[in-house]
Amino acid sequence: MITETLLTWIARIISGASVRWVDSQPDTCQRVYFANHTSHLDVVLVWSSLPTEVRRLTRPIAAKDYWDRGYVRSHLAKVFNAMLIDRQEIKVHQSPIDMMLREIGNTHSLILFPEGGRNPEEGIGEFKSGLYYLSKKRPELELIPVYINNMNRILPRGEFLPVPLLSSLTFGPPIWLEAGEPKADFLARAREAVVSLKDR
């Protein structure tokens, strides 16, 4: 509880984030927030910028190989209720999508980064297919695009000390998987939803 408040404030101070909701509102209904991924702080940042009652119901998806290492990280992962996914061992039998859906049940929301890893370059990389399979199994979930601006300068890949610049987070209007929409089209449309928030 105390760690949660503290963490939220630290994340806000380091990232100097201004949060905007464009054509959408914070809500406790079940949602999937998907964002571009440029730094380790992204997970904490998106999570901490949600209003408290929404945040309590939201579980970020994080890479097990990073967040499971050491006491501090695994403790932090517990505080923000992260769902750790093993990126190395994705098997057909125990697909991470099924696990996510099992874990969120009918109450929780998810934060995920469909690029699959931090994108070292400018711009937003191609989306992996997880978002598609997730929507295919639960098509009623609202998919909220989130654009994170400037975090790659605050804590770039390979650096461990952040520089306190200002960043911004833009939450956009929800999208859904259309009936019978092909995978590639849907992923391109989802990516476009994030990209278009850049200029909003």
């Binding site: 100097g16 201004s18 905007r20 601006n149 400037n150 200002l166 960043s167 911004s168 833009t170 909003r200």
Partner: peptide
Amino acid sequence: RGEVSTGTLIEGH
């Protein structure tokens, strides 16, 4: 720098 392009970063502050 074009304030438009960076407007969202400093907006609110």
